[in-house]
Design a protein around this nucleic acid. Structure first.
Lengths: 346, 346
DNA sequence: AAAGGTAGCGCAAACGTTTTCGTGTTGACA
DNA sequence: TGTCAACACGAAAACGTTTGCGCTACCTTT
């Protein structure tokens, strides 16, 4: 087992000074060709690689990005990470991942763990609990300490930083417009409680689309699910609520669901109730995940271009890190949505 | 914007030495109560936190784990990461993620990037290309430099290290036995080419289960898919092959698929061919992902306990890191599989 | 031969810690 | 008053780099 070799060891071995070794390796012309070759040969032989930690300490930058997300077992978030990783790696950065698990305290702890020198900047999406408590001091303090943050998807006005969001409003309008265009007259929406900003926006898009088409929104067609009670493992509550929705609104012929799990649950329930898709009821979801693609029938959905969000976030952050002219001029990038038509609509 | 405060700054401000500050903060009784309180108050006021990089350099350990996986947009891998993150965080470690994207060179580059001081050890699953080329020198060199590695799921005998694997053989035997028990007489398998070790093992389990039940295996019932041609986005090739399988073997009444995508594709194709599930054909998959749970009918499947694999891997690695008595005594932990019965079997 | 130039190398500081080993001051005691 | 211990603190090294500057030969020039 040969441990990693350092400059000091090379210097000792070759009976020169550390600085000479360093310079030789970086091809400084201060050093004679003789010594340069000798040092480089030795270094190659022992597979010398500069120690990243020492470099980080010296340069006061780690070339590492911290990413905090609420959950990783989730198609959207993992795809964002893939995007971040892609451009981060291309630009010589590493990615260190922290999971908040939708909890405020874990978010805070994770950030504190990373903020003390481990990383150069954050990319994050806010946890639900934090959104609920509306306590954003940890973000603001981090920024005040000179560490840049890029927020994606779940963002918040109270924090002044770069943001990458999906155009939820237009996205859901596209979806609802499509349903209307396909002949739906009674369109229901399955959405979340309003404190989830994206849920709120998608609901708003639904309402606007209806209004622009001179369709009167009916409160009974709006199902706001409290997803504190809906886990991935226990969809019974959700199913019951959807059954109730259909039974008290027999005329529903279109459903817009704000995520794909809700959407395929709608399809499942509808089928149980003897309704066929898309003939009797057309369904559109949000988020183009694996479920949408492989459901039967496959699900028409609004794609958020998650990977692109990740890429864009990483670009924003790294640009911010590398271009010193920090003008406090934060931008908000809006990623366009795309309606992917499959077989759950006519 | 107040930058992070250092020991030096506190020392200067309070007109004491750096060592005094350091000792005061660590409650050394070398320091008088007076100064201790003064220093601690000041530190609290300015929210002093020790610089992780400096500590890493000094202690020659980073308290960070490097994880290299082939793909993150994948239920199994993301669940493993969740497991790793869970125990890593609990034990004060960070997790830094690298994606090989199933490519040998990206795997090597990623490892080199992290091996130079950034992390204390690796947890990884080998990329397909690496498995194909059978070039494992980067793993071996890393280990020789004193950096421990834990491999999970896709492991290889040529590398001597801790391993966490799923009992693929028993898992698929369980599945096939279940099909037999449920009355299937002609059981097909959809598997991968043999260079994917888990595919090979699962095929072997299928064969053994048949043999133990005195059923003669038929080559025509074994479909080895070349997944170089099957991407997530293009399943047409796969579908055609499955159609051909069914058409040339009309008597198929059970299918074991080595992953959930193959399994739900089987169900889709079967339905198209007018076969109903589970009445005409029963299907069992491998990997308990989101597709299995939410497919219609929901899929009976072999769960690999991905999160547990992650947790176990992290425990092995951290134990290895913290217990110095490194006896080169590597272990291979086998995670039991579990058959989750749902509606694709009778 | 004296003056100046240059090639080739080493010293030391700096990044932010922790920790060992002094060192000076005080007080107690003989 | 002299000795010694205890107390409170500081200096310095170490982790592994990079880099500006200084120093010593030697070489060129006049």
């Amino acid at each position: 087992m040969k441990r990693k070799v350092t400059l000091k060891q090379i210097a000792k071995e070759l009976d020169v000074s550390i600085s000479t070794v360093s310079k030789a390796l970086r091809n400084s012309k201060e050093i004679s060709e003789d010594t340069r070759e000798k040092v480089q040969a030795f270094a190659k032989l022992f597979n010398y690689r500069p120690n990243n930690i020492a470099l980080s300490l010296k340069n006061r930058k780690t070339k590492t990005i911290g990413v905090i997300i609420p959950e990783i077992v989730h198609h959207f978030f993992s795809k964002v990470i893939r995007g971040i990783e892609l451009v981060a790696n291309k630009r010589g950065y590493n990615v260190i991942v922290g999971l908040s698990n939708e909890s405020f305290s874990k978010e805070v702890i994770n950030m504190e763990m990373l903020a003390n020198g481990s990383i150069d900047g954050f990319i994050l999406s806010i946890s639900k609990e934090t959104l609920l408590q509306q306590d954003y001091h940890h973000f603001i303090e981090t920024i005040n300490q000179g560490m840049p943050i890029v927020m994606f998807d779940r963002v918040v006005n109270e924090v002044n930083c770069d943001k990458v969001i999906v155009d939820d409003l237009q996205g859901s309008k596209k979806a609802v417009n499509k349903l209307i265009e396909k002949g739906c007259k009674n369109i229901a929406i399955i959405t979340t409680k309003d404190y989830v900003s994206v849920g709120k926006l998608r609901t708003q898009g639904y309402l606007e689309a209806l209004e622009e088409n001179n369709i009167k929104a009916k409160g009974s067609l709006i199902l706001k699910v409290d997803d504190a009670f809906v886990s991935d493992d226990d969809l019974e509550v959700l199913e019951r609520e959807i059954v109730a929705l259909f039974e008290s609104n027999k005329s529903i012929d279109g459903v817009f669901a704000v995520n794909e799990l809700y959407a395929i649950t709608v399809m499942k329930v509808a089928r149980k109730l003897g309704l066929s898709i898309p003939e009797d009821v057309q369904v559109i979801g949000f988020t183009d995940g694996v479920l949408s693609k492989h459901a039967t029938p496959s699900l028409t959905t609004v794609s958020q271009h998650a990977q692109e969000m990740g890429e864009k976030s990483a670009e924003l952050l790294i640009n911010n890190l590398e271009i010193e002219e920090d003008e406090d001029h934060y931008q908000t990038v809006v990623i366009e949505t795309e309606l992917i038509e499959r077989n759950s609509t006519k």
